[in-house]
């Protein structure tokens, strides 16, 4: 049944007002939207990161639901432990309610340092939803490159210098890696359209077993983006096919959106200061071309997996 925004007005938010994420940050939008349509009570755990520190500055707590953070690399293990306790205590009759378990991690805590714990949790089949708010870098510590950082981005540990034009490597495809765990639900999405995240996370949470949702969400500070443009930049990410949105449900790939026109990836890069160095000179142009090639190849891969073809308007 389709969810309507109007029906969600009175829903208590899992994350409350007064959190201290930056103005315009995409991460709180992800959290707000993700948990809005979930009907069951949820317990949340998070990897160390912006979301975690900015919502729990002692003695203030922005979570309206039970919340646990213990370290950076272990959100997958933490959600496993909570779910394991729940299963055990429910069996003994000490808990009677149905509760759902959600873990949030940034891309640093998910693609990199927390990948092992997430992989283990997925393999063991705990009933949980892991949501990566992917802002393509270690933003909490000052914009260092991660394995989710796109090629060509200027970061503090892969800076755009006189010789090296920012990050050289392309990001790992974590969504595909998670799909390769053959868990019942995997999705890649972004906050270009609120119903995307609302509905996909609802589906993820209602699916028994592990679910993984990779949500592109801008760090306006270190993407060097106008803070009002969180939705618009995500729209560009989808329109340029830089970030295809799709689901993998029980192994079946399903494309979420096909742009009508072939929009060059440069349109996604332009509003962001982290790519500004690419927009001038031959070296930058070569990086953009390489990035476009990666985008085209990955799009073809997703189309093929989804059994789709794409005929953009001229």
């Amino acid at each position: 049944m389709a969810v309507k925004l109007k029906d969600l007005i009175t829903k208590e938010r899992a994350m409350r007002q007064g959190h201290r994420m930056c103005p315009g940050c995409g991460a709180p939008t992800v959290v707000q939207q993700a948990l809005l349509a979930v009907e069951q009570p949820v317990v949340v755990t998070a990897a160390t990161g912006c979301l975690e520190v900015s919502t729990t500055i002692y003695p203030y707590n922005a979570w309206g639901v039970p919340f646990l953070h213990s370290a950076f690399e272990n959100a997958g293990a933490s959600v496993s432990g909570i779910e394991a306790a729940y299963v055990a205590l429910k069996k003994k009759g000490k808990i009677t309610k149905d509760i759902k378990f959600v873990a949030f991690g940034g891309d640093g805590g998910t693609y990199d340092i927390g990948l092992q714990a997430l992989s283990g949790a997925a393999e063991r089949g705990h009933d949980f939803t892991y949501i990566c708010y992917n802002n393509q870098g270690y933003m909490n510590t000052g914009a260092q490159r991660s394995s989710a950082t796109p090629k060509g981005a200027d970061t503090s540990t892969a800076p755009a210098g006189k010789v090296i034009p920012g990050k050289i490597q392309k990001p790992k495809d974590l969504t595909v890696i998670m799909a390769a765990h053959h868990i019942p639900y995997v999705a890649q999405t972004t906050i270009h359209n609120p119903m995307e995240v609302i509905e996909k996370v609802k589906k993820a949470i209602e699916t028994p077993g592990p679910a993984f949702v990779n949500v592109l969400a801008p760090c306006v500070l270190f993407w060097r983006l106008e803070p009002s443009l969180q939705r618009d930049i995500c729209k560009l990410a989808v329109e340029t096919r830089f970030w295809p949105v799709y689901e993998v449900i029980d192994g079946e790939w399903k494309l979420g959106y096909k742009p009508k026109k072939r929009v060059p990836v440069e349109e996604f890069l332009k509003p962001q200061g982290r790519f500004r160095h690419l927009l001038k000179g031959e070296t930058g142009q070569a990086v953009i071309e390489a990035l476009q090639k990666d985008v085209d190849e990955e799009w073809e891969y997703v189309l093929k997996r989804c059994g789709e073809t794409w005929e953009p308007q001229a």
Binding site: R16, Q17, G18, H19, R20, T55, T56, I57, Y58, P59, Y60, N61, A62, W63, G64, V65, P66, F67
Partner: peptide, 9 residues
Amino acid sequence: VPASTSEKV
């Protein structure tokens, strides 16, 4: 920390 205390911030 109890829930929702950030609403004072």
